[in-house]
């Protein structure tokens, strides 16, 4: 047992810069995944059969195959077919957005279904059009119900983002491995990476609690 953090010190800024890369990556995937997931959930509860069918099939495929496989397909296979090289970061973001949208759409669908049907009837009886009813009456209430589940999904996304290191994106994980390889010492940089991920997740958890409390003001 000989841990030597002194040797790691010069490389710490290099690893910490990965936080920025990871955060960018997570933030973009999260926003895209949430928007696309909301659209999919509306397809699922909607009356248009073909869209419902599409959203169900979509969810089934993205939940039914490994994330890393999806990412490798998008990163290596898409350029092979189309000749367009989209780069590790974009491929990663695309994969994570498409994948988490499948999960998020299920969470939102459940949230919408859990809103009392009297809410829809009251809005209908007031002559409120469908779009307005969804955006201003149903979704805000659904969102409040699903916040904990959504936070869970975001935390998973943050941690799972480490697999973009496989396609060479320079996130925290990849940087820790590079430092490990160049020093022939893996324990210390990986420990640091673990600590950074843990702190990121804690920050997300806290943000979720604050949001929950703010949404609870109408209780």
């Amino acid at each position: 047992m000989n841990l030597d953090f002194a040797q790691l010190v010069p490389s710490i800024p290099y690893i910490l810069y990965g936080i920025w890369v990871t955060l960018q990556f997570v933030a973009v995937s999260l926003v895209l995944g949430f928007l696309w997931g909301t659209v999919l959930s509306l397809f699922k509860i909607g009356k248009i059969t073909i869209l419902r069918w599409f959203a169900d099939a979509y969810t089934s495929v993205f939940r039914g195959t490994p994330l890393i496989l999806q990412m490798l397909l998008i990163y290596y296979a898409v350029p092979q077919l189309t000749g367009v090289d989209i780069g590790a970061f974009s491929a990663g973001v695309l994969t994570f957005a498409l994948n988490s949208a499948a999960y998020i759409s299920e969470i939102i669908r459940a949230g919408i279904n859990a809103v009392d049907k009297g809410q829809k009837e009251a809005a209908m009886a007031l002559g409120v059009p469908y779009r307005t009813m969804m955006l201003k009456i149903i979704l805000p209430q659904a969102f409040k119900n699903i916040l904990p589940a959504l936070m869970n999904e975001f935390i998973t996304l943050t941690k799972e983002s480490a697999i973009v290191s496989v396609i060479g994106a320079l996130d925290i994980m990849r940087r820790a491995q590079i430092v490990g390889a160049s020093n022939y010492r893996f324990f210390e940089p990986l420990l640091l990476a673990g600590l950074v991920y843990y702190l990121l997740v804690m920050m997300l958890t806290l943000a979720g609690r604050v949001m929950e409390r703010r949404l609870a003001k109408s209780d």
Binding site: A122, Q141, S218
Partner: peptide
């Protein structure tokens, strides 16, 4: 059951 909008 009233069906007021609880978030408003």
């Amino acid at each position: 059951h009233f069906n007021l909008f609880p978030h408003l």
